[in-house]
């Protein structure tokens, strides 16, 4: 079965210069292993290919549990000089939540 991240997780976007941070927090801790398995840095890079130009690093926080994605060159120059509407990228949490994942363990 394919589901959208929006259905099982929430996210908040933050900015530092031209770097975008995206948290990914499962509503249920039971879904954390699925997120770890499916939502890899590579998978997010492919999903956000029109948004993030640079490298994406993923950090795992099993205590919360949550994942944190740090996306380089994601804000078209950064808050202060970008020509985009959303210069901070504050809306981009919902771009991550648009991602579809397969819930079959060996799918």
């Amino acid at each position: 079965m394919r589901i959208k991240l929006y259905d099982i997780a929430h996210s908040r976007a933050g900015d530092k210069g031209n770097t975008l941070t995206l948290s990914l927090i499962p509503y249920s801790a039971d879904d954390y292993p699925l997120l770890c398995d499916r939502v890899t840095a590579d998978a997010v890079s492919r999903h956000l290919q029109y948004i993030v130009a640079g490298e994406i690093t993923r950090y795992e926080l099993p205590n919360l549990p949550a994942l944190q994605f740090v996306c380089q060159q994601a804000l078209t120059g950064g808050v202060t000089t970008s020509l985009t509407m959303d210069t901070h990228g504050k809306s981009l949490s919902y771009a991550l939540l648009e991602m579809w994942v397969d819930t079959e363990v060996n799918g």
């Binding site: 941070t21 927090i25 944190q68």
Partner: peptide, 27 residues
């Protein structure tokens, strides 16, 4: 949780003038 990770790069190395803070073990 959303706020703890807001604008955080490496959660185990959050750099301020006071400390290199580690948020990864926060409960």
């Amino acid at each position: 949780k959303e706020q703890l990770l807001y604008e955080v790069m490496d959660p185990s190395r959050y750099i301020t003038p006071d400390v290199v803070a580690d948020f990864s073990q926060v409960r």
